[in-house]
Computed example of a mutant assay.
Amino acid sequence: MNPSNFRPLLAVVMLALPFRTTLLFADDSERASVSVQGLRCEYLSNPLGIDVQKPRLSWRLDPAANLRAQSAYRVLVASTPSILQHDQGDLWDSGRVASAQSTWVEYGGKALHSGQQAYWKVRVWSDAGKSSPWSAQAAWSMGLLQSSDWHSKWIGEQRPDGTAGGTPLPSPWLRKTFTLVQKPAKAVAYVNSLGYYELYINGRRVDDYVFSPAVSDYSKRNLYVTHEIADFLVPGKNVVALWLGRGWCVKGHPGVIHDGPLVRAQLEISFGNGSTAEVATDEKWRIHESPITPLGRGTAFGDYGGERYDAGLELPGWNQVDLDDSGWQTAAVFEPASALTAAQMVEPNRLMETIKVARVEAYPQGGWVIDMGKNFTGWLEIKLPR
């Protein structure tokens, strides 16, 4: 070997040796303490409104702890954060369970009811018998578990006289004003939509979801999404508003007997003094056409359609409390095809990326071809000259 090549190699080995020696000979006192992280319930982080009555719990061990294996665990589930902080589980205390299982650990406590909140944490023991500190708290809430828990009606837009069946109707705005005597301690909105929706309280969008709820086969199930809305409500007059979109709720698709969109929703409101209130969709809600009208049939069989946006129909403040909606129509009540109503048990769709246009060309038959450079699910933002 050439000595000039040998010296750098020797230097590298000598520098690396102390580091490797530390790893090989470190005792337990020098290792990071065992810790538990990444708590999930039914694969989700702190999910709202689940409908699995015996949820499955999972966690991860901190890889920095240099832990070979988990030998046991203990799970606590409590009805309030304060009870859990005192290391008590009034809903479930698994006790120390000798098991390496850290995924899909089935809840084994008291029966859970609709709307119930649960808070939980876990600790584990290493293969050497060393216990971890308690994990940080995590939580989940139950959705509406029985069909009788739904007190709301399916509502939407009645097809105007003289409008042929199958003709796309404008995507409707819906709203309802109500009064609260005090600021609520807790408030939850359950929205069950055939087609897509956006939910607003007092003019504010309550989430960053898009294309919500997730796609489902309406002949088998329709999905609802749960929202915590207490921070959006105020003492006095309030308004809840929904902007619906057709999505895949098109007559001819399995399970669709009315051209959509349709929605049923209810707000469950609790106050600090123990009293409650409920706001539910019914024929008293007000409805108005929005600037968006679908184009084409919008079927999954090749006629995907599009949208027409009429800026002349814009109505500033349509979802705010001080709008006078006395001139709006009242919503129509519908009875969709019977199917299972289930909680959406997947992460919601969110805006993840803004794509710039790659190419714009005039189309010989008229119009323009806008090439985004990739396939995507989303929408366009176009600035037009005044």
Rank of each mutant, 00 (worst) to 15 (best):
I257Y: 03
L39I: 12
R40W: 09
G195D: 04
P81K: 05
V34C: 06
T330E: 11
L84A: 07
E198N: 14
A214D: 02
D93N: 10
G165W: 07
S171I: 08
R7G: 09
V12N: 11
V97Q: 01
V239R: 10
N192R: 06
L10R: 07
W318K: 09
L39A: 12
L144P: 05
V240G: 02
Y200L: 06
H227I: 06
R297W: 03
Q101G: 08
N2E: 13
S131I: 07
P316V: 05
A343C: 09
S4H: 14
Q85M: 14
V181P: 10
P316Q: 08
F211G: 05
A343E: 03
D324L: 05
M372F: 14
S29G: 14
L61T: 11
V206Y: 05
Y209F: 15
S270D: 08
K183A: 14
R205L: 15
T293F: 08
Q53H: 02
Q53R: 10
P133F: 01
A138D: 09
I382M: 12
D127S: 15
G165A: 13
Q88W: 03
L84S: 04
G89I: 04
S131P: 15
S290Q: 01
S171K: 03
T163D: 03
E157H: 04
I50E: 00
V52T: 11
K186L: 08
D207A: 08
D282K: 00
E289S: 12
V256L: 06
Q70Y: 07
A138F: 05
V105H: 09
K220I: 10
G255N: 00
Y196I: 04
V250Y: 00
D161L: 12
V210T: 13
M14K: 12
L223A: 00
F25L: 14
S147A: 14
W243A: 03
L112D: 02
V97N: 00
A277K: 09
D231G: 14
W120H: 00
A339L: 09
